[in-house]
Amino acid sequence: MEKKLETVMDELIARPGVVGCVFADHQGLCLGVTGKASDDSAGIIHAIAEEAARLEPKSKPPVILLENDNRSCIITTTGTVTGAIFKSIN
């Protein structure tokens, strides 16, 4: 049933530098989580994407990059699905 999503997440986590990923639906509910990521963050990630999209409502959904010294978090929305990828910075 959700095998395709699991396949997508497994492929993601196998990429170099990726330590985790989260997917949320249009209400911020967690659809799937892998690696070093919490399903609690799904709602926050969805809210961040939604707020950023309100800056330019006519543009396509933005890609948001949150970064600190050793981690980065990339967020974007396609259709009703919001995804976040956590990467470690070497």
């Binding site: 997508v8 890609v63 990467k87």
Partner: peptide
């Protein structure tokens, strides 16, 4: 700004996830 590699990664990943989720059916 965000690296092109990361940009492609997130866009393709979320697009793939969106397609995968739209394929979900209750059997």
């Amino acid at each position: 700004p965000i690296a092109a590699e990361d940009l492609n990664l997130i866009i393709s990943a979320v697009a793939g996830a969106s397609a995968a989720i739209s394929d979900i059916k209750v059997d």
